[in-house]
Simulated assay, not measured.
Amino acid sequence: MFIRVIVWLGSIVALSACASVDYSKLPPGSFSGSLFVMWVDEGGSSGDGNFLFVPDPNDPLIFRRSDPRQPGSVIRPGLMYTDGGSIPKIAQVFKGLSPWGYAPAYMIHDWIFTARHCIVDGENNPRFDQVRDVTFDDSSEILGEAIRGLVEAERVQPNDVAGGAITTAVGSVIAKGLWDKRGACKDLIVKPKDVAAAEAAIPGSSRLIARRSFRLPPETPPVPVQRRAKIITRVTF
């Protein structure tokens, strides 16, 4: 969601300038749990549509940094909108720049930005405490560590060019402008119909995460049990 076209710009910058974060020197983090996303609509001009990350309360996706003393040492993303890496079509021809190639890492980065936007808008929900002290520089390091963790676990092939480009992009001036943006939290609130769809797919996902994180209105409709979604595939670590 928040990586957007800056990944494409960053891939160019990475070939001609020094990155503020050296991807090659970052330690790998580690993942556990399951990753599940639902299609919501076609989205914008970048990425391959708009999706909803749905946390499984029985097997939550969790990322751990190699150094437990670092900010954001343990991150468990909550219910949120995402469009993966938001890679423009023109850039997707390059190896490693698929909008879903590093999907678990993108979910962690999206959650950091979602939390950041709500924190700067005055949201004090404890669900954001795990990333409340994460700085902008930390956010790009965490994404790089997450990608390296996927490589280390042999879930993706090594690709220092793509990993370096993406890490550079999310640490760019353009990304910093998004990091400091105010008034964005209200647009991140998951719509009631999408909350119901998430609950139908993974019972308990909206009850444990969404209502506490985004203070959803009481008029959120009940979930029609007879329309419970069928999960086609799930990525588990």
Score class of each variant (00 low, 15 high):
Asp194Met: 04
Ile166Leu: 07
Leu15Pro: 05
His109Gln: 13
Ser24Asn: 13
Leu143Lys: 00
Gly122Thr: 07
Tyr102Phe: 12
Asp187Trp: 11
Trp39Lys: 15
Ile90Cys: 04
Val93Ala: 11
Ser34Met: 01
Lys25Ile: 04
Ala91Pro: 01
Val156Leu: 08
Ala105Arg: 10
Ala229Pro: 02
Ser206Thr: 15
Val170Gln: 08
His117Trp: 01
Arg211Pro: 05
Ile75His: 06
Gly177Tyr: 06
Leu188Thr: 02
Leu208Val: 08
Ala175Tyr: 04
Arg211Phe: 14
His109Glu: 10
Ile202Thr: 08
Ser45Gln: 07
Ser172Met: 02
Val170Lys: 03
Gly96Thr: 04
Gly144Leu: 02
Ala105Lys: 01
Ala198Ser: 13
Leu26Pro: 13
Arg215Ser: 06
Asp110Val: 13
Ala197Ser: 09
Ser30Glu: 14
Gly96Ala: 04
Ile147Phe: 10
Thr233Lys: 15
Val40Pro: 00
Ile202His: 03
Phe136Ile: 03
Cys118Met: 00
Arg64Val: 13
Val21Asp: 00
Pro222Gln: 09
Val93Phe: 09
Asp187Asn: 11
Pro27Lys: 14
Gly29Glu: 13
Tyr102Met: 06
Ala229Arg: 10
Gly163Leu: 09
Ala103Lys: 14
Tyr81Gly: 07
Ile108Phe: 01
Gly10Gln: 02
Tyr23Gly: 10
Trp8Tyr: 05
His109Tyr: 14
Val170Leu: 05
Asp56Val: 01
Asp133Arg: 07
Pro77Tyr: 06
Arg132Thr: 12
Val223Ala: 07
Arg64Glu: 15
Val190Asp: 00
Val5Thr: 11
Ile62Phe: 06
Val235Leu: 14
Ala105Asn: 09
Phe53Leu: 06
Leu61His: 00
Phe36Gln: 09
Thr167Val: 15
Lys186Cys: 04
Lys230His: 15
Glu141Met: 02
Cys185Gln: 01
Phe2Leu: 02
Lys193Val: 13
Ile142Tyr: 00
Ala146Thr: 12
Gly49Asn: 12
Ile209His: 15
Met38Thr: 08
Ala198Asn: 09
Ser98Arg: 00
Glu145Ile: 10
Ile90Phe: 12
